[in-house]
């Protein structure tokens, strides 16, 4: 199957669909008037979008938009029921009343509509028995604190060589390693046309090297020295040059034994 490049028109329709989803979410979240959303014309936009949809991503986006529009329709139903119910009062009127009356009057109104819960917070005879039993069994504080053997707080020292051998510190400076891998990536990006598969970059001779490279790459991506994208059509991550338009987000990638 030949994958078509998204045309300008399709991209603008896609943006419109994303806008519909955002509007629906915002309306539901804020509890705003759901009739502000023109469901009929939004469905028209979705119909056009679906005709030109060619990737799984497009179909998922269409499904998401349909779901959000259906929640708006559900909210419209609730809105009509609520407006016709006894509880309906204009929020602007309530807001102005809250602002205009004094706190004391507001509290007095509240108290006249309030029937607080009655409850008892008390100790019972069984709980007192339990407490006495615990107290009698409790050993003096000195005997409880004296359980650690003396001299257990002995200080240990490590030389830089030992620490390096144990893998606690790097024998090369971190910035040098970063610069080295950044240079490698830039060379690969130049030769591969601006996009290199993530797994190729982090591949190492063993698992430790792969993890080290992944750590360095994550540092470069987080600091904005290189970019990273996910291609749903291949289900793979790619390293790219950094772009200002990238939306920052956190992702987790697992690394197998082979890198």
């Amino acid at each position: 199957m030949v994958k078509s490049k998204p045309t300008l028109k399709r991209r603008s329709v896609r943006r419109e669909v994303e806008k519909i989803i955002a509007q629906c979410r915002l309306t539901i979240k804020r509890g705003a008037d759901p009739f502000q959303i023109d469901v009929k014309s939004s469905l028209g936009v979705l119909r056009n979008f679906l005709k030109s949809a060619s990737t799984l991503d497009d179909i998922c986006l269409d499904g998401e938009a349909i779901y959000n529009l259906s929640t708006v329709v559900e909210s419209q139903d609730r809105w009509v029921k609520f407006r016709s119910s006894r509880l309906f009062v204009d929020p602007i009127l309530i807001e102005s009343r809250i602002k205009s009356i004094s706190n004391k009057v507001l509290a007095r109104i509240f108290v006249s509509c309030w029937t607080p819960i009655a409850s008892i917070e008390t100790l019972t005879i069984p709980s007192i028995d339990l407490a006495i039993d615990y107290w009698n069994r409790l050993k003096p504080i000195k005997s409880r604190w004296g359980r650690l053997p003396k001299g257990s707080m002995k200080h240990l020292t490590l030389s830089p060589d030992e620490a390096s051998r144990l893998g606690l510190i790097y024998d090369r400076r971190f910035e040098e390693q970063l610069s080295s891998i950044e240079e490698q990536i830039r060379k690969l990006l130049a030769s591969e046309g601006g996009r290199v598969e993530y797994s190729i970059i982090v591949r190492g001779k063993d698992w430790i090297e792969a993890v080290t490279k992944a750590y360095l790459v994550s540092f470069l991506v987080s600091s904005g020295r290189i970019g990273m994208t996910y291609d749903p059509s291949t289900d793979k991550f790619y390293i790219t040059p950094y772009s200002n338009y990238d939306k920052p987000k956190s992702i987790a990638i697992s690394i197998g034994i082979g890198g």
């Binding site: 509890g31 609730r78 009062v89 309530i94 509290a107």
Partner: peptide, 15 residues
């Protein structure tokens, strides 16, 4: 009490 009254009334009026 005033904050509770205002909050409940405002939230109730906003569905």
């Amino acid at each position: 009490l005033a904050i509770l009254a205002a909050s409940v009334a405002y939230i109730a009026s906003r569905q």
